[in-house]
Amino acid sequence: MQKKYRIKKSTEIEKVMKRGRSRANSYFIIYKCINKEIANPRLAVSVGKKVGKAFERNKVKRYIRNITIEHLNEINPDYDYFVIARKGVKELDYAECKYQLEQLYKKIGMIPKS
């Protein structure tokens, strides 16, 4: 994922969590906060140690980023997003992870409902 689409600073992530709205399912939590200063959507991803070992966490992060990149042209550019993976996500294969994340993206208004 290109740098212009990432949130890296912890202060910006905290801002998204404090000011934004959130939606969740049993595998993910997504926070959404308006940011009209930047002309493109930005994303931060967090996968905690409860999910598993480093290779499992990295795999989940890759899944989240790839799914988001697939929908990049549909995402509203006025928002910053913060995705948190929950404990049970490591058991999902790519297709199920994609389905669960897309449903949550639609629920929070990140991508249009079809």
Rank of each mutant, 00 (worst) to 15 (best):
K87S: 14
V89W: 09
R65Y: 03
Y81G: 09
I69M: 13
A54M: 08
S46M: 05
K50Q: 05
N76I: 07
K59R: 15
K59C: 05
E70K: 13
G52H: 05
R65Q: 08
R62C: 01
P77F: 03
E70S: 11
V89I: 14
D78Q: 11
V51L: 09
D80W: 07
I75M: 15
A44L: 08
V83W: 07
I75C: 02
N58S: 14
I67Q: 07
G48F: 02
A44I: 00
K90A: 12
N76P: 03
E56Q: 14
E74D: 13
T68L: 11
K49Y: 02
E56I: 06
A54H: 02
G52A: 04
G52L: 02
K87H: 15
K53A: 15
P77L: 07
S46N: 12
A85I: 00
R86C: 06
D80P: 04
I67R: 11
R57V: 05
P77A: 08
P41L: 07
N58L: 02
I69K: 15
N40W: 04
P77M: 01
V83L: 11
K59Q: 11
K59I: 00
Y81Q: 07
D78V: 01
P41F: 04
K49S: 15
E56W: 03
I84H: 05
D80M: 01
A44C: 03
V45G: 05
I75S: 09
E70N: 07
K59N: 07
R62Y: 06
F55A: 12
K59S: 12
P41R: 07
I38S: 07
A39R: 15
F55V: 13
K50W: 00
V83K: 05
A85Q: 00
K87D: 10
K50S: 12
F82D: 04
I69Y: 10
A85F: 01
I38K: 15
G48V: 02
E70D: 13
V51F: 11
E56S: 09
A85V: 00
I84V: 15
V83A: 10
D78L: 03
L43T: 09
F55Q: 13
R57Y: 03
I67S: 14
N73G: 02
I75P: 05
R42W: 02
F55R: 13
K61E: 06
A44W: 00
E56V: 07
A39C: 06
K61M: 04
P77H: 08
E56L: 09
